[in-house]
Simulated scan of single mutants.
Amino acid sequence: MGCAISGSGLTARAPEIRAGEEETPAGLTANHIRLIKESWRLIQEDIAKVGIIMFVRLFETHPECKDVFFLFRDVEDLERLRTSRELRAHGLRVMSFIEKSVARLDQLERLETLALELGKSHYRYNAPPKYYGYVGAEFICAVRPILKDRWTPELEEAWKTLFQYVTSIMREGFLEEERNKRSNTQTSSRERPDKRSTAI
């Protein structure tokens, strides 16, 4: 596979703050944000390619993830995946989310709202949080060769921190939606009239 962090779930420790840097609520430093934005300008040029590489690698390294994707569940041929219009479209949707996340790095409240809503929608898609970290790991593996010598340990740490932050909020959204669904189900079952008590 060739990527050392593949499947790690991006559970690296919180980054250390260097002298002269301020920590944001996300654990992202001003330097992280600068590095992410600079690298994103280059990544954008290959956005569709990165999306496809990311998901083909994801299914290759974590085939259990295909269970979440109805369209790809039974596809074993990786070449068929690489040329799939549906996979390309989904990859572009994920890359669009990453693009929006990068654009909101200076507005963390808006980024949190975006990630929370995405987590809630993943509950409705039946895509559990255990898979979220894998996407970040595969994104890093996909962009590293594109950025070549521009890829540095600091840049990797910045992207890891961003994905860790976003996936933790997505997880909150997923769990919140799960609790709401459970609560609504319990409420509606209590509100149903008991046929025995209403019979005359």
Rank of each mutant, 00 (worst) to 15 (best):
C65I: 10
L108Y: 00
E172W: 01
I36N: 09
Y134R: 05
R80M: 02
R124V: 15
R41S: 14
Y125C: 13
F97G: 09
V75R: 05
A89R: 07
S121A: 12
E64R: 01
H122N: 07
H90W: 08
R110D: 00
H32S: 12
T185A: 04
G173E: 11
T152N: 11
D74P: 00
Q164D: 10
E38R: 08
E112K: 07
R144S: 11
G133K: 08
A26Q: 01
A26F: 00
A48I: 14
Y134W: 15
A103N: 12
V50I: 15
K181A: 11
D194P: 05
A89T: 09
I17G: 03
I200K: 09
T61K: 04
Q44H: 10
D149N: 14
K195I: 15
P25A: 10
A30P: 03
T113I: 10
R85M: 08
A199W: 11
L87W: 00
M54G: 02
C141L: 10
F59D: 13
K195F: 12
S6K: 03
Q186F: 15
V135S: 06
E178M: 08
M170W: 08
I200A: 08
G91I: 13
E178T: 07
D77C: 01
S96F: 08
R110H: 04
R85W: 03
S197P: 01
T198L: 15
V143R: 05
C141G: 11
S39D: 08
V68Q: 03
E138K: 03
V68I: 15
D106T: 13
C3G: 08
D149P: 06
F97M: 12
S121Y: 12
I200Q: 05
W151A: 12
V166L: 04
S121M: 10
G27L: 06
L10Y: 02
W40L: 02
E176K: 04
D67S: 10
H32L: 07
E22P: 01
D67N: 10
P128L: 12
N184K: 13
T24D: 00
R104P: 00
F72M: 02
Y123A: 00
A158M: 04
E157I: 15
G173L: 02
T24M: 01
V75M: 09
E117D: 13
F174S: 02
A12C: 06
M95V: 03
